Amino acid sequence: MKIDLTDKTAIVTGSTAGIGLAIARGLASCGATVVVNGRSSDAVAKAVAAIANDVAGARVRGVPADLGTAEGCAALVKAEPAADILVNNVGIYGPKDFFEITDEDWDRFYEVNVMSGVRLSRAYAPGMAERRWGRVVFMSSESGLNIPVDMVHYGFTKTANLSVSRGLAKRMAGTGVTVNAVLPGPTMSDGVVGMLKPGADQAGKTVDEAGAAFVRKMRPTSIIQRVATPEEVANLVVYVCSPLASATTGAALRVDGGIVDTLA
């Protein structure tokens, strides 16, 4: 099975590190022209250079923009007016007790994690429909189903991603544009490494060992019993973005290591 995305342009939001960078790298390796996005010009330039170094002949460019604002989304669309593939990956997270989550926190999480994808899908999906081919992917999370008690605001936004992706998939029926959500579980992103490393160093363990201990304690239903790699998540996303996934739409696709204990 060969995934060929030659002549396709893919925008991956929040793609300067972690899962987003792995997705951008994976799409580039399949021949897509990839647009990297992040808030910092330096981070975007570094990610573009990394992909160009890792993928021979990569066609990659970057657009710095803060997609947590309507203005930032408009700036990205102005710089890149059309796309064949849109991966709504940008997101923020962080633990906070429900009674300490302010209105400003709720607004910020909603704007970044939900409205960025809404605005960009609204901008790019009509052009995909006109060309009779397109892929839109919303990066949700197993936390959208298993709402974390210490991150209710985060879980709420990831549930919203599922609703928007399913509704938009139905709206795009018959156009050749598929819309899906991908639900990672705990993944060894830069942020997770930063969270695990101090405790791992103190206990004399590797970060991978600390990650496995975290999963066993905090996600005991995990079947793989470890933290996934960004590449493992990216592999599913790249497939969903490919012509091979033409009959997959309106789906919530889990790459959570089996955490969500359900048959469907």
Rank of each mutant, 00 (worst) to 15 (best):
V179L: 09
E209S: 04
G191W: 15
L120P: 02
M128D: 12
A203V: 01
G176P: 06
K197D: 03
G127C: 04
L86R: 08
M172W: 13
E100R: 08
Y124H: 05
L145H: 06
M128F: 13
R166K: 15
S165K: 07
V112K: 05
D208L: 05
P126Q: 02
V193Y: 13
V90H: 15
I101R: 11
H153K: 04
D84S: 10
R119N: 04
M139P: 01
Y110P: 00
Y124K: 00
V137H: 08
D201M: 02
P186I: 02
T221I: 03
S121E: 10
R119W: 10
F99T: 10
P95G: 03
N88A: 03
E111T: 01
I224P: 00
E130A: 12
V164N: 12
L162V: 04
D190R: 13
P184G: 15
F156Y: 10
E209Y: 04
R108C: 00
L168R: 04
R132K: 11
F98H: 08
D208W: 02
R219V: 06
E130G: 02
K170V: 00
D150M: 10
A210Y: 05
Y93R: 01
L168F: 09
V177L: 10
M195K: 09
V177A: 07
L168H: 03
A181R: 03
R132E: 14
I92R: 09
L168G: 05
A169V: 07
I223T: 07
V90P: 08
M139Y: 05
Y93S: 13
M128I: 02
E209T: 09
E111I: 02
I92S: 03
T102E: 15
R122G: 05
S189T: 15
T178K: 14
P126Y: 01
T187D: 11
T221P: 06
V137Q: 05
T206Y: 11
R219L: 06
V136R: 10
